[in-house]
Simulated scan of single mutants.
Amino acid sequence: MTKRRLAVVFGGAGFIGRHLVPRLARQDYEVRVITRNPEAVRPMMTQGRLAQVVPWATDLRSDAALARAVEGATLVVNLIGILAEKRRGDFQRLQGELPGRIGRAAAAAGWSMWCMFPPSAPTRTAKAPMPAARRRARRRCARPSPAP
């Protein structure tokens, strides 16, 4: 019997996630897609075996919910990113604080790989907050050695 491989993809229903999730399914990962819109995952649920791709609603403000989301994962990918704030402080919360909190939850769960892909450039309407939030996220991400 082969060992179960679980990939947890935060923001997996977004632009990059729509391409990554089916690829992970083809590589025989069970994929837990953390998304605010579970309906967006429905087309991806036909990839691979029955129940191989599963939408998962999580309260991103709760460290306990993040810990439950990454439990048992061998791969954790954070694709959550925004290019413009809808509310003041969104960059700080989603790209400054959340990546570090996801990284710490993954490390505490004994992760074996951790990846983060924030957006690459701000839009014209979003000037300075995004790059500053990305720098803070890089400093805060937990990067202990992978579990044996």
Rank of each mutant, 00 (worst) to 15 (best):
S112L: 10
G72E: 13
R4K: 14
A108S: 11
P144C: 11
L66G: 08
R42D: 03
F91N: 06
K86W: 09
V53I: 03
G14S: 14
A108R: 11
A73E: 05
R134K: 10
M1T: 03
C115N: 05
R61P: 09
R124Q: 06
T2M: 10
T46P: 08
V76D: 11
R143H: 04
P144M: 11
V9R: 01
L24I: 13
T58R: 09
H19K: 00
L98Q: 07
E30T: 03
D59Y: 07
I82S: 03
A105M: 14
R93I: 00
C115T: 09
L60G: 06
L60A: 10
A106I: 09
M44W: 04
Q47N: 06
T46H: 14
I34P: 00
W114C: 04
R26A: 15
A25N: 14
G14T: 08
R93A: 05
L75N: 01
P99E: 10
L60I: 07
R134H: 08
M45A: 11
F15C: 10
R136M: 12
P118R: 08
A108I: 10
V9E: 09
L66H: 09
R88Q: 14
L6V: 15
N78R: 06
P122F: 11
P118F: 14
H19I: 00
R138C: 03
A13K: 04
V53Q: 02
C141S: 07
A105L: 10
A64K: 12
F10N: 05
K86V: 03
R5K: 15
M130V: 10
A40C: 02
L50M: 13
L24P: 08
V41M: 03
A126S: 08
A64I: 04
V33W: 01
P43R: 10
Q47G: 13
A57P: 12
M45V: 08
G17K: 00
A106T: 09
Q95V: 01
A132W: 15
M113I: 05
V41G: 01
L79A: 04
A84R: 04
R68V: 12
A109W: 09
G89P: 02
R140Y: 01
A65W: 12
V77W: 07
A132V: 12
I80F: 13
I34R: 00
A133S: 07
V8T: 11
A57R: 15
S112K: 15
I16N: 00
P122W: 13
S112Y: 09
R87N: 05
R135D: 05
L98T: 03
I82K: 00
L24C: 13
W114I: 09
P129I: 08
A128T: 02
L50E: 15
A109H: 05
T2E: 14
L6Q: 11
R36A: 07
Q27N: 13
G110K: 06
R36Y: 06
W114Y: 14
M116Q: 15
A73C: 11
R139Q: 15
D59S: 11
A40Q: 07
N37M: 07
E30W: 10
P148I: 01
Q27R: 15
K86S: 07
P122K: 12
V21I: 07
M116L: 15
T2V: 14
R134D: 02
V21Q: 01
G110P: 03
M130E: 13
A67E: 14
G110Y: 11
R18L: 02
M130K: 10
R135L: 09
D59W: 06
H19L: 02
Q27E: 14
Q95F: 04
D90G: 02
R124P: 03
A105K: 01
I82A: 05
A133R: 00
P43E: 13
R18I: 01
